[in-house]
Structures are given as structure tokens and as C-alpha cells.
Amino acid sequence: MKVSIDDVVLPGDYCEDIVNAGEKSKVILGPGLRKEIDKVYITKSGVLRKRAPNTYWVDSYQKRYVPSRAENVIGVVVQKAGDTFRVDVGGSCTATLSYLSFEGATKKNRPEVQVGDVLYAKMLIASKDMEPELVCVDSHGKKGRLGVLNDGFVFKCSLNLVRKVLSPNCPLLNSLKNEWPFELAVGMNGRIWIKAKTMRETIAVGNAILGCEYLSDSEIKSMCTNIASLLAGHVS
């Protein structure tokens, strides 16, 4: 079936608008789109979106992570193998992480990473034919916010929720950050790490995030005030 921008699409549909735009200038096909000979076909169900000038993608529901380059993810170290660590990021196979890709690491000065540690890392290589590779430094050799996450609490959620939380339009983090202090790391692989002062506060942040998946912006704001007042003990 022929579809256009902002339509609900199913796999097997094709979009002529993209082909027409492609004749004039370069277009970028995001997730859920695939070029076959002279047509652009949809491969995922959801809503076809466009961002000016020429980026197209399909907003779809997904829980399973498929690694892609330059995404920040949260992984768990499952094995130390010689000079690399194997990190479980939720994809189809574990990712590798060299011990040299930490800030200030040398052959003599190895980073202190144990099996079972939680890491916040960036995907350096992610292709369907190769094992994904992670790094914990940026291109200047600085760690920035990447590295081992100590203490805290990790939980899993759908990839849509992660995108929603990270979206600049989402009021969730803006409303929560004024209520009580906490640290948060959101991995694009559907894992979220939280660290707050007490267990009550940690659980409150977790519930707020999980609760906002199907709520509108105004509902999220009222939920956050609700949770904050519950936590402060005004309402029992």
C-alpha cells in the first residue's frame, strides 16, 4: 500500500514521497525503512516520521536491542578474557571492551573492572556481521560521563520508553530533578541506572520512569508531583 508522512504504516508498504525527495537531494533513511531497487519499503510497524530537511524513520515499538553505532548503553561485565572484557548489553551477542579504552589506562595501569560491574559505555563498532565493540572514553581520551557505575539500581524497560525519557520535550526529568536529588544514566539498550540517597527515593524515581510510558505530558507532570508529595510524607 502507498503511504505518506505521519501515516500508520505496516511492513511491505512503500512511500513515494521519499523517492521523489531522493531525486532532488540526498535523503537519510532511518530505522524501519529499506531501499529495494527503485522503491522505499517499510520494514517495521508504527508511524512514518520526517524531520526537515531529509531524514525519514518509523516510530515503532520494540523491546529487544539491536546494537547501532555511537549509542550510549548500559552493560554488565560477564567475563574477563585476557585484554578485553565481555559486556552484556542485551543484544544478540555480548560486546567487547578493551581494557585500554578507559581514561588513563595503559598496559601497566589496568582499570579496576570486575565481573558483574555495570558500565556506561559508547558503541564504537556495531554492524550486523561483527561483534559490537564498546569504549569508555571519547575521542579526546577523556571519560566524560562514561565508565563504571558504582552502587545504584538498574532496571530494564522498552526502547520506546528510553527514547521518551531522553527526548528534550519530555517533562519527566525536568519535573523530577526539582523534587529530590538523584543520579540517572539511561542506556539506549533499554536499561536505566538510578542512584539516590535512600532506597525509597530510588524506587520512587524508578516508578516514575516506568509509569510515564503511556502518559501524556500533563499527566506526567501531575504524576511527578503526586510521587513527590507521597515521598515527602504529606499524603500517606
Binding site: G12, R34, T43, K44, S45, R64
Partner: peptide, 11 residues
Amino acid sequence: LLNSGVSMRCT
């Protein structure tokens, strides 16, 4: 399969 987000050629 549609719900899981696996890429499909068609339904």
C-alpha cells in the same frame, strides 16, 4: 512479529 519490532519484508 509486528509487535516485536523485527524487520519484515511484508505482512
